[in-house]
């Protein structure tokens, strides 16, 4: 090979960058998210149901939160009617967080895992017990 030293050095540098995900994880615990639904308020609920179905919430909770923010703050609408026609007060603090008071055991579990950093808490206040960050 001509200039073999330089070419092999180049290949090694390339491999160091390109295989990063393969060696970075070695020796690190693969902590999987385990969101908890065992807050006192949820435990007392007769029917354990969020504002929409579990599957819908799992995929679209961010969409609902965004819509709620726009409805509450920009359109001054404070009532949400879900698919079943049930009414809810549009409020992160008083509706969502009433049941899911365990932010660090509920929201943060998956968000940390997927490296999602929602900016809800730039404005909103996290009550004691759900301690933020």
């Amino acid at each position: 090979m001509y200039d073999g030293g330089k070419i092999i050095t180049g290949i090694i540098i390339f491999l160091l960058f390109a295989t990063f995900p393969f060696y970075y994880n070695i020796g690190k615990a693969n902590v999987k998210p385990d969101p908890k639904l065992d807050t006192p308020v949820i435990k007392q609920l007769a029917e354990k149901k969020c504002v929409e179905s579990k599957e819908y919430m799992r995929a679209n909770h961010m969409q609902i939160l965004d819509d709620w923010r726009n409805m509450a703050l920009r359109e001054a609408k404070r009532t949400y009617r879900n698919a079943e026609g049930k009414l809810f007060e549009i409020s992160l603090q008083n509706t969502c967080m009433k049941c899911h008071s365990n932010k660090n055991k509920f929201c943060d579990e998956c968000h940390k895992y997927a490296n999602v950093k929602p900016y809800c808490w730039d404005c909103h206040f996290v009550k004691e017990g759900g301690a933020a960050k």
Partner: peptide
């Protein structure tokens, strides 16, 4: 995309992500 291949996610990935998404349009 390294955020999907590393656990915990290295900080430079989060940094790039936050700069990339700093317009804060929509969710995600």
């Amino acid at each position: 995309h390294l955020r999907l291949f590393t656990n915990p996610v290295p900080s430079f990935v989060s940094l790039i992500e936050s700069v990339d998404g700093f317009l804060q349009i929509g969710v995600p």
